[in-house]
Write a protein that binds this DNA or RNA. Sequence first.
DNA 1: AAATCATGCAACCGCCGAAAG
DNA 2: GCTTTCGGCGGTTGCATGATT
Length: 249
Amino acid sequence: MEVKRVKPHLKKNLWKPEEDLILKNYVETHGEGNWATVSRRSGLMRGGKSCRLRWKNYLRPNIKRGEMSKEEEDLIVRMHKLLGNRWSLIAGRLPGRTDNEVKNYWNTHLNKKSLIMGKRKTTEQDHKQREDNDENMNREKKSRPWCTHSEPSGSAICLRRTRSQSLGLEERNMINKDQEKDQAECTVANPWINIDDPNSFNCEIEYPMLTGNSNNNARFVFDDEPLIAYLDSFILFEAFGCDGESVGK
DNA sequence: AAATCATGCAACCGCCGAAAG
DNA sequence: GCTTTCGGCGGTTGCATGATT
């Protein structure tokens, strides 16, 4: 006889104080993790994900609530310029703040602010520049299909990463050839940092020490403000790992 | 005082990668 | 090697609340 597993009807919407209390007590006695079990055993009619989110964003000890300080705001702006929408990474630099909070703060306060500050009439030249950028990006995509492009046109920072690991032989060869060509074209001012064209704010920074493997270089391409990219680039070690074996997400 | 609009934020959704079976 | 489950992430939605008309 077939036994059907019936999915319990899961609750949605805002958490009630009594639900918070149940979850808090459960996690404090059994520990974090295993969220699917938490939702079943605690008696909460919530999904595991919902429990995890509630704990992480609201109930966890040492959560800092209330207004962001000027220092926190500055850090968010700088980190966002450097990393883009990597909210969990940015939040990791702000003790007590959650990724959700940072994301919300950016979307409601800072994003608005930057739009106002950057507001000016779009000129013909801007349109031309944007078209050129799009064209270059498309060309780049065709010539380096292994690159991951996450940059929307006009974003403050563009971050690409090449990684030959887990790729086919043909792709690996393509990368090696391409990197050789790139390196031949670069003026190397410093073994770690190649600045292609400081006037146009394009710079490439390579981190061979991330992997210790020439086939597995992580390359970051910044299309804005090389100085900030340089000063803050150390954060990338955190962002992409530096265990000498693998480059994380 | 009531209706409408704007804003902030908590929570949900869908996707992805890793681990387990 | 395939499938399933779980955790984590960023994007998005929708509700509550305050401001404005």
